[in-house]
Design a protein around this nucleic acid. Structure first.
Lengths: 161, 161
DNA sequence: AGGAATACTTAGTATACTAAAACATTAGCA
DNA sequence: TGCTAATGTTTTAGTATACTAAGTATTCCT
């Protein structure tokens, strides 16, 4: 009878599953979770300034600076002083950084995509529409989130909704 | 057109939204994320042994021990040596621990529940059924104690607190 | 010139984590 | 029964990291 409870349980499963996957990626890449979060954000939003990046992942600038220091030492990201506004520093992934992020995170997404493509079209639509509902009910719509995996596309339309 | 992509974007939004909320809880409770993860697991699965707990949150026993040390010092959890098997140590939340976890994490869930209860019954069923689909497609069903039955109906008397 | 914005630095702390080992208890087996 | 192996937890020592708070340097803007 308590369907909202059911929904929450399922959501927890879903989130937990991706948590575990993230931890697995963290292990396989040798990155910590904050570093991973940084790299993922960069993959979607690079080039981006340090401050924007900090806002994006809800950390302070000082913290992000230190994280970037470590990622830079590993040659996964690069800094570039802005030309028009020289206060800004633009962060982006190095080729090695791109490579590292390309390797790891696909398995779960691939599985999802394969299985999703297997179901019928009307059911796909149902899932999408239900997820929209859930996103709204969690107040998640205003957050922009490009597809977390799928590397090929790095243009960044802010056209969310 | 690419509906699986749409689904992934929405999933990412949902996960990101709960990530942010978790960070907010972390701030408001003064707990770190691993500590929070521990507390949340305890809320669902206590009493549980240290080893089981470690497995549950994918950390090593030694790490969990140190996390428990800190939570114990804050009087949020308690240890109890097993009586039948004296090697085991059973962990559970103290009343303060329960109280702390009761306060924080509800807002988003409450919002979700309120909004979920607002939609029509058939739509609720659709959402639940879609989430089951998604959980399956992410291979999330085997995780958690939640029984993931065949698509279509899930019966889950979860004694949530 | 002055204040705001941007990024970085510094110093210090708490935490998570690793690897190895210690320790107590339990289980298996001859 | 007695010895050994396995289990469950903790300990130890050491490291890297994240994080905070305050302060610095540079650049931008009016």
């Amino acid at each position: 009878m308590n369907k909202s409870q059911d929904a929450l349980v399922l959501l927890r499963q879903i989130i937990r599953s991706t948590d575990m996957q993230e931890k697995e990626i963290s292990r396989s890449t040798g990155l910590t979770l904050p570093q991973l979060m940084t790299m993922q954000t960069l993959r979607l939003s690079a080039p981006i300034t340090t401050g924007e990046l900090a806002k994006e992942i809800s950390l302070t600038q000082a913290t992000v600076t230190s994280i970037l220091d470590r990622l830079e030492k590993k040659e996964l990201i690069q800094r570039e002083r802005g030309t028009d506004d020289k206060r800004k520093v633009w962060i982006s992934l190095t080729p090695q950084g791109v490579e590292l992020m390309k390797g790891a995170p696909t398995t779960q997404q691939d599985l999802f995509t394969r299985r999703f493509d297997d179901i019928q079209s009307w059911e796909q639509s149902m899932v999408v529409s239900a997820l929209e509902r859930v996103a709204f009910m969690l107040d998640a719509q205003h957050l922009d989130a490009a597809p977390m995996l799928d590397i090929g596309q790095i243009d960044r339309p802010d056209s969310q909704e």
